[in-house]
Simulated scan of single mutants.
Amino acid sequence: MKIAFYGSSLVSAYWNGAATYYRGVIKALHGLGHDVTFYEPDVYDRQKNRDIDPPDWCRVVVYEGTIDALKAAASAAAEADVVIKASGVGFEDDLLFEQIVAFARPDAVRIFWDVDAPATLAEIRPDPNHRLRRLLPQIDAVLTYGGGDPVITAYQDLGAIICVPIYNGLDPDTHHPVPADPRFAADLSFLGNRLPDREQRVEEFFLRPAADLPERRFLLGGSGWGDKPMSANVDYVGHVRTADHNAFNTSPLAVLNISRDSMASIGFSPATRVFEAAGAGACLITDAWQGLELFLEPDREVLVVRDRKDVAEVLKSLTPERAAEIGKAALARVLRDHTYTDRARQADGVIRQLFAKRAMEAAE
């Protein structure tokens, strides 16, 4: 099928946490025979900070950050069998969605793909006249990259016909074990951009344990932390290119995952870094959140911490041998159960069911 996919960016991960997810899902959808065109606006200097070239498995169309350019890009929806609007595109999101729905053919499948369901729901729930909320009954399905039953119920209560989580996963061609790199040597590393609903948890699970363990070395990657107070044993490396993620994950003793406040509270929302780290064979330490055991087995494939004291205790007792054992088990698990091919097959099944439903309705 011909798919028109409107998202933040496929070619740049700069201030764009959904990039890995988009790439994994769309590449796998292409592998299943779909013809995907990705439309992204030229905003937030992402085009100046590309980390991949346009791939051979997806056509990429970059449009200017203007209303006229947006409308021109949205008009291309008329040529597609499946029209997908992702959340957080970054330029006039609601207008873009309205234009896409207006241009889509009557027989086309219309999907809203939410890559940050907790934030989206928090925005639209209090406002019955929110433009996105009014559009939900006009689309065929909401797909989300996390959230489980709480998100499914919330979206259906707001008028969505169906809501299906398509979780983050692993592209083993992109994220895999590599030799350690001295640039990223540490006892514990964390990679994530500085965001308001993440900062307090980064303080609790990373910066405070670093201060508690001055003899240990900590490594912080991601944009926006430059002026953040941190102890002398924390090395800040700034934005880490996607090409360096494998080395960032394989070089330290352990890698830390810290959920944003909203993701932790709603549960069932593994971040891309969970699968990136596991795919590299890293020893992953994560904050606790509901649903974790659906993806990795605690104490065998992942280590779980609930506060700064837990982080310190885990690091004190973690040996290189134990870390390697956990990383090996996690890698085997994600390769078996959590690749983007698995996720794309699920999305493909939803799309084909919706397309068949549309065809039946048109024939009646």
Rank of each mutant, 00 (worst) to 15 (best):
I258K: 01
V255R: 00
M230Q: 10
P320L: 07
F295S: 07
A243P: 05
G267P: 05
R306F: 08
G349L: 14
P298V: 11
L219I: 07
K309V: 12
S265K: 15
L256Y: 01
D310N: 01
F268E: 06
A277F: 06
V255Y: 05
V302D: 02
A247C: 09
A344F: 05
V305Q: 04
L296A: 01
F218I: 13
S231V: 06
A332M: 13
H245E: 04
E313V: 12
F218D: 14
R241E: 14
A243D: 08
G221H: 15
V311W: 06
T286I: 02
T242W: 06
S223H: 14
R345V: 09
D342L: 04
C283T: 09
V234K: 04
P320I: 11
T242Q: 08
P252F: 11
D287N: 15
S317K: 10
V334N: 02
S269V: 07
A312L: 11
V255S: 09
D307K: 03
G279C: 13
Y340H: 06
H239K: 11
W289S: 03
R333D: 01
L292N: 03
W289A: 07
G238Q: 15
V334A: 09
I326G: 12
L296F: 03
E301I: 00
R300G: 04
A323Y: 13
P320R: 11
N233L: 07
A271Q: 15
A323Q: 07
T319Q: 02
D342V: 15
F218H: 08
Y236S: 04
